[in-house]
Design a protein around this nucleic acid. Structure first.
Lengths: 229, 229
DNA sequence: TCAAAAGTGTTAACCATACACCCATGC
DNA sequence: GCATGGGTGTATGGTTAACACTTTTGA
């Protein structure tokens, strides 16, 4: 059924940069396109915004449909509107970035049978459209954000060790951190709940597990507290 | 001439939050609507994105057409896509914020004869659409940005005194700053060029004028320098 | 008993903050 | 000469950064 307007309208899409962490490096979730343009190329998951859904809803829906990933931390990144970013016609895309626990969110076969897989965030195959630019912007945003907001916890299991947390921050910031200073700072914030549990099945002394205390974080944020790694 | 598509498309607009500074408080540029919906109400300048112009271009064009303001610092803020933000139909709006020198950019009569005027940024009349929400987001962004990037200089004349600069920061951050510490910090950054000029026509000792050294700023930024008020 | 990672304090350098008086100028 | 804002330095406390060894555990 056709829809007619008095003036031409750009198409509107969402694209999602989904970051994951596999205890080693930062990953990004890509899908392989099976339609033109760029058939066979890897790209960010995304698609057209429907007229009766919000932008956030569109991003979540596309992610679910194309990668099976649900229930994630999602935040709007930037809107890309260059004239030739899609060779077919004018397409404006609202980009989002998301953080998920890579192990708790296995990449289900996408409903429309495209391939979906995790790639190192700083070493992807060539991407379709302007998706490399979008990915670069998302990485930069994540690096900025992580310094003053405790977003990184979304990337870890609910229970984690301080070393895991430190490795994650090192992976995101691409810089080594001092163990003692890192622990001092994090523990000093009083945002981590020490559990009476240690990690299992390791070939050395088992580390204590912690949990991020969201309650406390909310309380502190309201009082004008700043995370500041 | 009608344009027809296979699926319905949201309309796409830009809205601009233009901040100015009158040596006293932070102002925002509003226009008075003369068309429905919200005829007679004050609103942010903005309008429809044309299919052959980028989002930035659309923002600049609308500003020029509606307020006569050109040649300003402009940055994308956020894209607003709530379902009922426009009562007529689904409209997604890419919001921008801009900084201009209020005195060097007098508000020309808008080409389409709407009224345009400056209002205190924290005390506007009720605004059309979700523009109050957009304004609040822009204010928050400005307050965040100003702490670690020297954006504020766009709001001042090219030559300014340190006291003017301090007042501006106080207005944006809504907090008083210590004169000696402020000067120490700013001058220590080596980003201000002291001129051999002083202000004119003041009834007390004339203050030295400074100019922001963009060259030096660019050089430092590349080396990973951080502004940090 | 060895390997591997956990856990833990101190010091020195730097930075942020608080604070008050004299000076130059125009009226 | 007085009112107005311009301009300047120091001392203190807190924060960050650098740094190495002992402990626990499983293999």
């Amino acid at each position: 059924m056709p829809y007619t307007y008095q003036y031409p309208r750009p198409a509107l899409t969402v694209d999602c940069v989904v970051f994951g962490y596999d205890e080693e490096e930062l990953k990004v979730l890509l899908i392989q396109r099976d339609l033109e343009p760029f058939a066979g190329k890897w790209a960010l998951p995304g698609g057209f915004v429907q007229v009766e859904e919000t932008l956030d809803d569109a991003a979540r829906r596309e992610l679910r449909e194309e990668t099976g990933v649900t229930d994630l931390y999602l935040e709007q990144l930037y809107t890309f509107g260059a004239l030739q970013r899609d060779p077919r016609e004018r397409v404006v895309s609202v980009a989002y970035y998301a953080l998920v626990n890579l192990f708790e969110h296995p990449v289900a076969a996408a409903t429309d049978a495209r391939n979906a897989a995790w790639f190192p965030a700083d070493d992807t195959p060539p991407l379709a459209f302007d998706h490399e630019e979008i990915l670069a912007a998302a990485l930069k945003r994540l690096q900025g954000k992580v310094r003053y907001q405790p977003v990184g916890f979304e990337l870890l299991p609910a229970k984690f060790t301080l070393t895991q947390l430190q490795r994650l921050y090192e992976a995101i910031l691409e810089t080594p951190l001092d163990k003692r200073n890192f622990r001092k700072k994090l523990l000093g914030m009083d945002l981590l709940l020490a559990l009476d549990e240690v990690e299992q099945d390791v070939a050395h002394r088992a580390a204590r597990l912690y949990r991020f205390d969201e309650e406390k974080y909310r309380a502190l944020t309201e009082k004008g507290f700043n995370f500041e790694l």
